[in-house]
């Protein structure tokens, strides 16, 4: 077979033809398009409705408790809902549902092909989709946390400024927690097709059980750092019949009585740093994994 010289080759002309962006350069246009596409995917379908209904639960429970037990202190309701129910149950769940499907959903719905054949590096596909997932879950968490605070404190004697400050602090802590969960579950979603099962096991055993034991093992849980963050930045004590009660002490196994300064626990900055670094490490590892592995999209031929 005769081989053409480069001058005769159509490939040389083709590759030098004007394109939206020169070869090798990473353009922001497809990345932004992917970000928008992922956001739109998140707000379509039943998943969005289920998540919204679940996130309405704390606000609904607050209304129910306040209407059936008008004497219940709002601070107790706030602690139970905003610092027990939401971080323990809802945040891992929302992260699990959205983050494990970052790539897996596209793969199962066979639409991943449309992303893989675009001028977007594989690592960027993962990171951009993760970023969109973080945006969705953080916005969802912020809106419904604010709604919960509204339901807990509306009509109470608590000052607006104080409640707003507490609400913003809760949103900040929840946002950081859900981001860490998303990064972790996103990585799990790349590792196993049974990411939902693995994630539920993780949330139940590691976050649910280990975090509540006063041992060093809880240092590997997200919820532990979220609790220390909350305890260091908010006051969870209230006066009951002249006696000061610390709601978080017993519930979070912080041993405040023997260690009032929480010397045995990380500082606020350290908690933020640990959650941020852990999240970034999971994201980077996920991106690396995504760049190196191939994704088999089922074809009707089955080959």
């Amino acid at each position: 077979m005769k081989v053409a010289s480069e001058a005769q080759s159509p490939t040389a002309e083709v590759l030098s033809a004007p394109r939206p962006h020169p070869a090798g350069q990473l353009s922001l246009v497809p990345l932004w398009a992917l970000f928008v596409l992922t956001l739109r995917q998140h707000v379509h379908g039943r998943r969005w409705i289920v998540m919204a209904v679940l996130f309405l639960l704390p606000a609904g429970l607050a209304v129910l408790i306040r209407s059936t037990a008008p004497d219940a202190p709002p601070a107790v309701i706030e602690f139970l809902l905003a610092f027990m129910f939401i971080p323990q149950a809802l945040l891992p769940l929302v992260a699990l549902v959205y983050a494990t499907g970052i790539i897996q959903d596209e793969q199962e719905e066979q639409t991943l092909t449309y992303l893989l054949i675009r001028p977007i590096p594989r690592w960027a596909i993962y990171l951009v989709k993760l970023l969109a997932t973080l945006t969705t879950t953080i916005v969802l968490t912020a809106v419904f946390t604010a709604l919960t605070y509204t339901a807990v404190y509306i009509g109470s004697s608590s000052g607006f400024a104080d409640v707003s400050r507490r609400c913003l602090t809760a949103i900040w802590i929840h946002g950081l927690s859900v981001a860490a969960y998303c990064c972790l579950f996103g990585l799990i979603g790349l590792y196993t097709r049974r990411a939902l099962v693995a994630g539920i096991l993780y949330a139940a055993v590691i976050e649910g059980l280990l975090a509540n034991l006063p041992f060093g093992l809880r240092f590997i849980t997200v919820i532990y750092y979220a609790r220390v963050l909350a305890y260091r930045s908010m006051d969870f004590t209230l006066t009951d019949h002249g006696r000061k009660v610390d709601l978080a002490d017993a519930a979070w196994q912080l041993d405040v009585r023997n260690d009032p300064g929480l010397e045995g626990h990380p500082q606020l900055q350290a908690c933020v740093l640990v959650l941020t670094i852990a999240g970034l490490a999971c994201a980077a590892f996920g991106a690396l994994l995504c760049a190196r592995r191939e994704f088999h999209v089922k074809t009707p031929e089955g080959s």
């Binding site: 040389a12 962006h21 070869a23 719905e109 977007i120 760049a291 009707p300 031929e301």
Partner: peptide, 24 residues
């Protein structure tokens, strides 16, 4: 087009695929 295809996203500007699967 004379270039390796694996992890070469810039090449995707020059190629189009109509996949077999009926997915949208």
């Amino acid at each position: 087009l004379g270039r390796g295809v694996w992890n070469n996203p810039s090449l995707n500007r020059h190629i189009g695929l109509c996949p077999e699967q009926d997915a949208f």
